[in-house]
Design a protein around this nucleic acid. Structure first.
Lengths: 290, 290
DNA sequence: TGAAATTCCTCATATTATGAGAAATATTTG
DNA sequence: CAAATATTTCTCATAATATGAGGAATTTCA
């Protein structure tokens, strides 16, 4: 449960796949257009039409058609002379998501209350299908959680925030994951095969929280699940301390603390807006694993 | 110069058009896929396949093909039962943009220094083609700049941050704008026709800053231009105060303050990474107006 | 575990995306 | 401000592939 895994920072790579047995996706024009965006990374934030032609092996006219569509939609922006960069739409959509997310209204005051007791850092992570994302961080110790700011992605199988979410997924989703991601699950030390995996997850549910050091080995994260509806995990609260500052009894204490706070957040979340009768979740709904 | 304009918050609407004389864009499959994303607003954050079919008038299979492509790319995420929400990719891309933006490393300490003197709020706005976006805010007075957080869009013609950028665009870009956006320019009180517009912009450049109250009438914003390269505006720094707290001589003082700070930021920005010899801007480049 | 919903697949047809080169703009320089 | 250069868009014939309908396979929830 305390294995060694690389901190997955899968920004540039290709899109997350459903991987539900089938092979790679078809190569449609939409796929190709999205593929262009994948090229724009912090390391190579500017691309010219010529570079894109070369990189993607497409005709000039095609590249310009794609780039134009992306610019019109605000996903790219043209820059002086030649070249394109990621456009304003991403910044706007992130704001739109923040505005619609009740967790970002509920959690900050809770984090503020816990701040002194935790004496480290706090993280709010949201569940998005096959990955988990940091969506809010509260820093006390400036040495801690440097790279955990909003948008930092985590594998669904690595790190305490992910694992505690994983453990509380519905049984059939767990089964699908066990089938389709056997290797990753084994590599993360979560069990070889469905039986072991299921038992490990059950053990986590019994405990109610997860403590792990598998992202940053100098730190320990203690995470509890947040439920958008009874039985439906959608996020987790993670308390962070330096490992040397967290002896076993402190870990147990922080676990209780995280669980209490997460339960409170869950209650407020479920009361935030009355769930509509017709089963359509209104906000911050639970992502499915495909 | 102190006219009445609505605070433009154009998030949900359609994509920004180049509008360079031509009519509306072609209706390609890529356009339609992007159109789906436009439906996901803070007011209607969850859409089911059936609702999308009804709204867009497309066949079931087509909707599912589109939705799948968007989910695979992380732009949508499936939620419990049925329904889709905006996906994690927007949050990740915003982070990616933040990581690559030297302004976000340079400006915070400058804002911290100014904080006490300004005694109000501060805004860093970035230029993206036809629009300007808040990308960083520093709040002192909690009553001020409530809705100016990162991602808040502004029209290129409204508000002091936009106008001071506008005024410093290259001459041919100003001319294009005067041709293609005559009505908006007139409506914003920036002049009827090219001559008047050009003169107004020249006057702003002479002054070096813009003071205006056209976004929130209770506030006054005082903005100075930030240059990514000599002669190439890419952003603006805006100092905000309540109007009653800003008599004329204070406005002049804040104008000087904003200009000095913006010049300092520009210097640091241009020194941040040596501009490459081949004219390809490396980071935070200047958007073109199309 | 079984019933009800959601999602995906198959296939024939019609639509439209593609590439090459020329024309039109935009941008920089004198 | 005008000429020179680089960038972007357009046109059109052809090949490719997106679309819709219904049935099959999943997923979801009781």
């Amino acid at each position: 449960m305390d294995d060694i895994s690389l901190p997955v920072d899968g920004s540039p790579g290709s899109a997350p796949r459903t991987d539900s047995g089938a092979g790679p996706r078809a190569d449609t024009s939409i796929t190709r257009v999205f593929g262009i965006l994948d090229l724009f990374t912090p390391d190579t934030p500017v691309w010219t039409a010529d570079l894109l032609m070369e990189q993607l092996g497409l005709a000039r006219a095609t590249i310009y058609r794609y780039v134009r569509a992306l610019c019109d939609a605000g996903f790219l922006a043209a820059v002086s002379g030649a070249g394109y960069v990621l456009g304003p739409r991403f910044i706007e959509f992130d704001r739109s998501i923040r505005l619609a997310d009740p967790l970002l209204q509920i959690v900050p005051p809770v984090m503020a209350e816990l701040r002194d007791v935790v004496n480290g850092g706090q993280l709010l992570c949201a569940f998005y299908g096959l990955r988990v994302l940091s969506v809010l961080q509260d820093k006390t110790d400036p040495n801690i959680t440097m790279s955990m700011e909003r948008g930092r992605p985590f594998s669904l199988f690595t790190g305490s925030p992910s694992r505690v979410i994983l453990a509380h997924l519905p049984p059939y989703q767990l089964r699908n994951l066990a089938l389709n991601h056997q290797k990753e699950i084994a590599a993360a030390g979560l069990g070889e095969g469905w039986q072991a995996f299921r038992d490990n997850m059950r053990a986590i549910r019994r405990t109610g929280f997860v403590a792990a050091s598998d992202i940053d080995k100098a730190l320990i994260g203690i995470s509890a699940p947040i439920f958008q509806a009874p039985g439906a995990v959608s996020a987790s609260l993670c308390l962070v301390r330096t490992k040397e500052n967290a002896p076993p009894e402190q870990v147990a204490f922080l676990g209780e603390l995280a669980m209490k706070a997460a339960q409170r957040i869950s209650r407020e979340l479920q009361a935030f807006r009355p769930v509509r009768a017709d089963r359509t979740p209104l906000s911050a709904p639970v992502s499915r694993v495909r």
